[in-house]
Design a protein around this nucleic acid. Sequence first.
DNA 1: AATATAATAGCACGACCGTTCGGTTTGGAT
DNA 2: ATCCAAACCGAACGGTCGTGCTATTATATT
Lengths: 195, 195
Amino acid sequence: MSKGFTTKETILKTAFELTSKFGLESLSIGELAKSVGMSKSGLFSHFKSKEKLQLMVMDYAAENFTLKVVKPALTKGRGIDRIEAMMENWVKWSGTYLPGGCPFLSAIVEFDDRPGAVRDHIKVLQGTMVETFARSVEIAKEESQIKSSASSEQLAYELYSNMIGFHIYNRLLKDKNAKVKFQNLYKSILEKVQV
Amino acid sequence: MSKGFTTKETILKTAFELTSKFGLESLSIGELAKSVGMSKSGLFSHFKSKEKLQLMVMDYAAENFTLKVVKPALTKGRGIDRIEAMMENWVKWSGTYLPGGCPFLSAIVEFDDRPGAVRDHIKVLQGTMVETFARSVEIAKEESQIKSSASSEQLAYELYSNMIGFHIYNRLLKDKNAKVKFQNLYKSILEKVQV
DNA sequence: AATATAATAGCACGACCGTTCGGTTTGGAT
DNA sequence: ATCCAAACCGAACGGTCGTGCTATTATATT
């Protein structure tokens, strides 16, 4: 019971890193086994199919995101501070913590045209992530820090778009001012609706 | 001379569509040959390597983007009208013209961690695309429609992020209001700096 | 119409893919 | 110390991948 759990965790951690670097699609069982240092079949027996592995990697990534981005922001008070903390945590996550690109983004673009369990799962995970943003905006509205007329769905969309934009500017274009642009945008997004 | 050119164009068109649906990475020569209706080796001889094929597909996509998004907007007058036309053309391109997702976006996330000719090429193409946006903002500044204090680089970033955000909301999350959110954002981005 | 050249097909190659199976090693409970 | 189940390995399977090679067919030029 214990041993199996430990190695499975090790596998998922390595798989998470490989996915960040090369995408969920290119994550091959043979290569993963080599990275972990065990046999292909030994690794495979932990997951009964590649699809199940992919699903678990996405869950691992989601937990990681919650742990590194969402949870630390909860120590901040309810309102705009918390939203800004989540934005800054995201920059750190995307820019320094991850060994490669955002595992969700690659999964999204790789699977949004392939119907199946993986696609459905990513959709759910990204949906809850967007809802988390929308909820934090709602809280800021309850605290009278954001105009009650503002749409939390719209704001969540704007914050989300900014995150993806930063990621591409930072990773592909290697824009040195990507972080500043990101901060400028989320601040002006919030200013616009601030009471 | 003529025949070769025609079939090569046919191949690239099909490859462009397959890339839109499944990504540049998953574009396999065998599958592409089957779609076009010719033999694997016959198709392969047109491109001396898979990498060259990928580069040409990206060029094809860039031409297509220019043709469908940038060029039609040039009929509009210099200034904000033209910027808004490009935004609307992009929605049409991304939402209705393409058979799948944005071929650039998939290429970006698939290759931003794989050094090589493909990565370098995408970087150049996306760079010029962003510069096109920045340039159209510059023009609007020359026409005194946008404050001269506004940073065209910053605005290009904001417009670009919005485009990617829309794409994900529309394709993965299947948000029915994605287009409205997109329009709201680019309008508020432009309003903010309008003279 | 003859000829040179481009375009395409067929076949084979080594490598890797996900998956299965039979056997071996290992760890924890009795 | 014994025993059983869990963990792991090695080898092999049918497929697909990109890429050569040789031969054949179609096209363009003279």
